[in-house]
Design a protein around this nucleic acid. Sequence first.
DNA 1: CGGGACGTAAACACGA
DNA 2: CTCGTGTTTACGTCCC
Length: 976
Amino acid sequence: MMSVSSNAVLDSSKPEQLDPEKYAKTIPQVKKEGAHDILPPVQVDTIITKVGKTVDNTHIKTEKSKAKEAQPMLTQESALGNPKPSPTNGDSVSKVSAYARLDFEKSMFYVQTLQVVLGRNPDSNHHTVDVDLGNIKSVSRRHAIIHYNFAAQRFELSVLGRNGAFINDTFVESGITLPLSHGTKIQIGTIEFRFLLPSSKSRERSKSPSKKQINPVDAVQLKTNLYKNSSKALHNSRGNLSSLSETEKDVFKSDDETKLGERRKLSSNIVSTVTPVGSSSSSTPKALNLSISNPNDFDVNAPTRSGISIAQQVTEALQTAAVNPQSYPPPINQPLDAAALANLKKKEPRKKQPKQPKKVYTLEEIPPEYRTKPACSYSTLIATCLRARSTEKGMSLSEIYKAIQEIYPYYKYCPDGWQSSVRHNLSLNKLFKKVSKEGKGWLWGLDEEYCAEKEKVKKKQVAAAAAKVKSQQDRIQQQQQQHMQQLQNLQQKYSGSGALPDTSPGAAIASPDIARSIVQKATVGISDSPSPTPVTPSSSNNIQAQLAANRSNPNIRPGQKPNQLSSDTMKALGYLQQELIKLTKDRKMTDKATTTTILTQALAMTIAQVNQAAKNAGIPGNPLASLIERNPQHVTKILTAALNAATLQVTKVKPPNSTNVGTSSKSLGTPKPPQASVVTQPSQPRVQTPTQPPFKAPHVTAKPPSVQVPVATNISSMKTPVPSIQVPSPVVESEAKNLDSVGILKDSPSQSNASPKSSASMIKKPNYYAKGQPGASADTINKLKRPEGFSKPNSLMKPQNNLGHPRLPMSFNARPGVAESTPGTPGVSPPKPRAHQPQPYSKAQPLKPVGYVNREKASTQVDANPVSKVDQHTVDTLTDSSFLELPPELSNPELDKVLESFSASPTPDPVQPGKTDQLGDVDFDKELDDILSTSASVNNSRQATPTAEAPNLKRERTDSDEPEGSTIAKMAKSEQ
DNA sequence: CGGGACGTAAACACGA
DNA sequence: CTCGTGTTTACGTCCC
């Protein structure tokens, strides 16, 4: 049994269609069953599509319609279709208006809406169908939908039911949508029917249902269908189909050729005369509204709608309307309140011509090359334009706009807004100035002066950046090379060196660890020439250069320089470390701080002595390394002597067991003169005390180069202006690592135990203070600039210029060219020397490298660890070559004499391991004692509290003393 | 994380 | 009153 219901799909938005009364009268209740019995099938050509007009013979007047019944036709024919009460007077010929008809075996259904749902007999009120296919299980509740596809301008059938359907005897599965043409045979379940269109005469004449087989290609996924181009469709389909049919002879022309545009035209012509079905009058978009404005009428979830939600459609429709307000009447459903209307009317006249809002370009419309915004800033943008187009008088704002658009077409296509920025820039940027007034606005021009200045700054910055990059690269290279070298050298050097004196198994109160750590720190101070600077040739004395640099640059923070340790230095340090460890083992150290101080001094003395001696002797290369190479014992002696001297100086007590300097294996620690350094001189190594007369050091061995005793003994006396902690440069760090890797630093307790921070902070330094980093390695520069100064004996005594001249801004990487530009903030601070700027570090670090460690931060960290003080001090002392500076009080003619005599002394020959010991020991001690005795007085007066002073020194520079060296401290403690 | 340079947007004022 | 200009402010984003 098949029953066709006439559940009207009514647009709820059209109250008139919902008039129950009308329906009651005009629409007979459809019998669910047997309807077809009552209602005779309607022939295709009897479809009446027009209201008020007879369209050829596409409509048929029934008897009943003629009977002047309100809507006779409806009662007859619309019984199966969607009844549409005709607003026309009952007199007029009543006709059924429909888009299509479904011909069932015994009945038919008029498709009067743009969408018709076919499905099972609704068993509840929850769902409704337009065409009830009966209560058959094989039929889904919503089995199929017939809808009109505006884009394709045709009706389509979407199969929703699980069981699919047969279209023209071809099975179509659920989810498929395919076009319907006149006569398409549809079978759902067991129900078969045909889709008929009110076609043109010709078609009608043919009458034969389309035999066209379903073209699979036509079967498209629902998603891609109907509303694919909905906005367009909606837009174009303002005319209701029903109305279209009114005037067109070939009303339901299903031909795809039919253009909606034409229809629209037509419809617009007839709007006034034809009343669309079911609509009051006025605008026609009835059908349209029907489909888009009443989501409730549709099952949003229905596949037919898939693709674009109704909401979307509505939105689109609204948007469309908004875009073309004039051409698109507001949606019917959007009530315009009086106020709004009034407003509209009000503004209507005023807005003469919305001034053609700037065209909004779509991406496609914009040439690809103009789709991206120019990389330059507005200021450069404007400047460019001004340069290109400006006259002497300048350019007006509008001219600037134009120029920009022409030169940078991007701005032709982009939305306004950039103009605001342009104005903003003109006003704000000093680069631009008003040249002259013209009418309303100004003529703008460039402030060349400012321009030039800025240009300069920029160049500098660029140069600095480039230099920085280069330096980094160089550094990396050097590091690699050096690392390799180090490994090789160390292997050679230590693999079988029996030259080292044996360690005496004496009581080991001393702290080898401290020694290690100190040496380790010392690397910071004696590291070789920084790589970046192409300065010191390998032949020159790196250490010397370094020290000289440091001396000459008070502000320099040694640690901050990216110094690199050459293999030689590595060797030297390795050796010194070993020796220091041995020597300290045999000594009794009172406390850690003292020990540290002593060791530090001893080390410093040794290094300084050797360097100086070498310098004086004209020995090229790394003197320490070469001396060690040639005569390690001699170095040991020097170290021993220095240790003794330092011990004496610091503790005021002559090391009990201080003995022969030369016998490393023996106890060392001969009480040394307060600030004497040992000079390994074959003939007479001497230790000098500032104020003391020269003395002759014992002839320890063959002939070490005459070394001058650096007068720097009293550490406390040395002050470092530098306010903060030294942070080793990255290079240093890497060096340290290298050392470690080689084993030199490996078991340094200070390293392992010290708070990571402290040691780390000490070793890890700001990388590349590319730009005038305050602690930057000015040494590099300094090295170049004044290595000589150091070489001069006098230079040692007289703080020399070093004291005299203010520290340079500290361009760490200072290399020619870079140094200048680096310091300070690019555009702001003068690239010049910031000599002695109290707070240079806090600011003026424009280009902080990634790894940059803030000074303040570093100091803070250090502070956190009280133990690090000692280490810090050590580092400061060693790195800050100031320890080599002769304290003012020590600087006297006498000393100078001594020094000179030293330098004059012949360079000793390499000592021979065997005999050096005795000889040297005796003489050395003796001389040393002499010197010490005389110098002691001086020292004492100066160093009230040697141990305490060291820390103070540090404090002086950084408020935050850092406590590093926890290990050292511990050891010292334990020792105590 | 702070500061500077930029980019945007917007509020206002002013004059044509 | 509108509109084009200029000035200022405020905010946000990036980068150093």
